Computed example of a mutant assay.
Amino acid sequence: MWIPIQINESSPEPLYHQIETQLRSLIVSGQIDEGTLLPSIREFAGSLSCSVITVRRVYQDLESEGLLRTKQGTGTFVAKVGAGERDEYRRVAVQEALESAVEVGKSVQYGKEELKELFLKILNKKYLENEGSDPK
């Protein structure tokens, strides 16, 4: 199975974290269904041009979160994610991204009102680009 993970080698973010974040998002959003067999660690590492240790860490971290399960001799599968769990994972992912954005804003001396104004401008722009995709 091909998994659409995009790696940015010039990013300061560690490789395992880039992969883990994107794979978590694909699972939580339902783009990779429950029960889907993921590529072997070796196969996935080869397709991403990274080390086996990196992919092993990603699989272990997501398994400890309950998003993956490994059956010895069979492979690694996407675990069942309940609606409540899915909503919590989504909320945490968005919250972490927003907290990070606020920290960056503060580090360059953006004030609270400037951040709020910029956020609303970006939010409106993004939803206008995808007109009709706004669920509310």
Rank of each mutant, 00 (worst) to 15 (best):
S25F: 04
R24L: 05
F44M: 12
L123S: 07
N124K: 11
V108I: 11
T54K: 08
E113Q: 13
E131A: 09
Q95C: 07
R56W: 08
E43W: 14
I27L: 03
Y59V: 02
A45W: 00
F44H: 06
K136N: 05
E131G: 01
G73T: 06
S51K: 12
S47P: 00
E88S: 15
V102F: 10
I3C: 04
Q72M: 08
G46K: 15
T74M: 08
K121I: 04
E9V: 04
I122P: 00
N124G: 10
V28D: 00
R91V: 06
V58Q: 00
E85L: 09
P39E: 09
R86M: 07
I19H: 01
V102H: 05
S49K: 11
Y89N: 08
E63V: 01
T74E: 12
S51H: 11
H17C: 08
K126W: 06
Q72A: 10
V104Y: 07
L48H: 00
I5M: 02
S107Y: 04
L38P: 01
A97V: 04
T21I: 06
E63L: 00
H17S: 13
Y59R: 05
I5P: 07
E34T: 12
G111F: 01
R90I: 09
I122E: 08
T76Y: 06
G105C: 02
G46D: 10
Q22Y: 00
I53A: 09
T54D: 06
A79S: 13
A97L: 10
K116M: 12
S100W: 11
G111S: 07
K71D: 14
S64P: 13
I41T: 14
Q18K: 01
A83K: 14
E113N: 06
M1S: 12
P39A: 09
R69K: 11
A45V: 02
L15S: 06
L26Q: 08
R86C: 05
S133P: 10
P4M: 08
L37Q: 15
L115T: 01
Y127M: 12
R24V: 01
F44G: 04
V55T: 02
Y16F: 15
A97I: 03
L98H: 11
N130S: 09
E34P: 00
E88M: 15
L15V: 12
Q72K: 14
Q6L: 10
V108Q: 08
V78C: 05
E113R: 12
E43K: 15
E113L: 14
N124A: 10
V52Y: 14
E117K: 15
N8S: 08
V108A: 03
G111D: 03
F77W: 12
V102I: 15
P135L: 11
I122L: 15
L37I: 11
A83C: 07
W2S: 13
G30D: 03
T54P: 00
Y89Q: 10
L48C: 05
E114N: 01
L37G: 06
E65G: 02
I19C: 03
E65H: 05
V104E: 02
V94C: 09
V78N: 03
Q22N: 03
V52K: 10
P14N: 07
L120Q: 14
L48F: 02
S25H: 12
V55L: 13
N130A: 12
I19V: 13
C50T: 14
A79H: 05
P39S: 13
D87L: 13
G132I: 00
L98G: 05
T70L: 04
K71V: 14
K116E: 13
L48G: 02
G35D: 08
E117G: 04
E113I: 12
G82R: 08
F44I: 05
